[in-house]
C-alpha cells in the first residue's frame, strides 16, 4: 500500500507547528497504525532526519496513550478501537492521511503528536477515588451487596482509559464524558456514595479550572470513545452535581 502522510510536526511547546508531507510505501493491511508510523520513523532515522514523536505504551488498547487525530477523527475511522488497534486495512492504496495531535487548550502539545494530558490526572486527583482504610481492618468488598445493574454500569464507566478522544472529538473540547465516567464509576457503588458530594463538586471544579469547554450534547464523544462510554454518564454527573450543590 502506498500512502501520503500529512503529519503535524512541532519542535516543542513554544514552537509553531506545521503539517509536513511524507510519502510512504510497502504498508500492509495487517499492520497497525502505530506499526505504520514505526516504518515511517525507521525510514526517517535511516535518512538522518528526526523521527515523528508520538505517544504509545501497551499497544493493546488499554493504556490510552496512543491518542492521535487521524483524518479528522480521534483514533481514526474505525469504531471502539484506539489508534494502536486501528489496522491499515481501514485505508486504501493511494490515500492521504492527515495525522494531528489532540487539540485542546487543556492538552498543550509537547512535541509533534504528543500532548500533555496531565489535566486529566488533576481531575482524577480532585476526587476520583474512595478513601479506604487499609491498615489491617479492610472490609471485603464482597460483603457489601451491589445491585447487578449498578455494578455493570459502574464497570462500564470504569473502562474509560482516559485517552482524551472525547475532548478531541468535541467541537467545544469538553471533558464531560471523561469526568462523568470517573464520577459515575464511584457514584453507582455504595462504597463511593460516602464521598459522592464532595467528589462531584471537586472534580467538576477542577475540570472547569483546566480550561475545557462546555458540553453542548452533540454526542460526538460517545461515538468516538474507544471504550463506548455512554452519554448517560454525563446525565448522571449533572444529576449528582445539581443535588450536591443543593446539599451544600
Amino acid at each position: 500500500m502506498k500512502l501520503t502522510l500529512k503529519i503535524w510536526r512541532q519542535k516543542n511547546n513554544k514552537a509553531k507547528g506545521e503539517l509536513k508531507t511524507y510519502p510512504i510505501d510497502g504498508i500492509e493491511g495487517d499492520m497497525s497504525f502505530l506499526e505504520m508510523l514505526d516504518v515511517l520513523n525507521e525510514g526517517l532515522i535511516n535518512k538522518g532526519e528526526e523521527p515523528v514523536v508520538f505517544d504509545h505504551d501497551c499497544r493493546e488498547g488499554i493504556c490510552g496513550s496512543c491518542s492521535l487525530q487521524i483524518n479528522g477523527e480521534p483514533h481514526g475511522p474505525d469504531r471502539l478501537v484506539t489508534t494502536c488497534q486501528l489496522h491499515m486495512r481501514m485505508f486504501n492504496d493511494g490515500d492521504t492521511i492527515v495525522i494531528e495531535p489532540f487539540r485542546a487548550k487543556a492538552f498543550p502539545v509537547i512535541k509533534d503528536l504528543v500532548v500533555d494530558r496531565s489535566s486529566f490526572d488533576r481531575i482524577q486527583q480532585a476526587g476520583g477515588f474512595i478513601s479506604v482504610n487499609t491498615s489491617g481492618n479492610t472490609i471485603d468488598a464482597n460483603s457489601i451487596p451491589v445491585n447487578k445493574h449498578d455494578a455493570d454500569e459502574s464497570f462500564n464507566a470504569a473502562t474509560c482509559i482516559g485517552c482524551g478522544a472525547c475532548v478531541a472529538a468535541c467541537k467545544n473540547a469538553s471533558a464531560m464524558l471523561f469526568t462523568s465516567a470517573k464520577v459515575s464509576q464511584f457514584a453507582l457503588l455504595p462504597q463511593g456514595r460516602i464521598e459522592a458530594t464532595e467528589r462531584v463538586l471537586n472534580m467538576v471544579a477542577q475540570m472547569d479550572k483546566e480550561g475545557f469547554g462546555n458540553c453542548t450534547n452533540t454526542g460526538a464523544c460517545e461515538i468516538e470513545c474507544p471504550k463506548g462510554i455512554s452519554l448517560e454518564n454525563i446525565a448522571r454527573m449533572n444529576r449528582e452535581y445539581l443535588s450536591a450543590s443543593l446539599e451544600g
Binding site: G72, V98, E100, R103, K171, A220
Partner: peptide, 10 residues
C-alpha cells in the same frame, strides 16, 4: 484542526 470530520459523529 486541519482536518475535523464533525459529520461522522454528530
Amino acid at each position: 484542526y486541519n482536518s475535523f470530520k464533525g459529520n461522522k459523529n454528530s
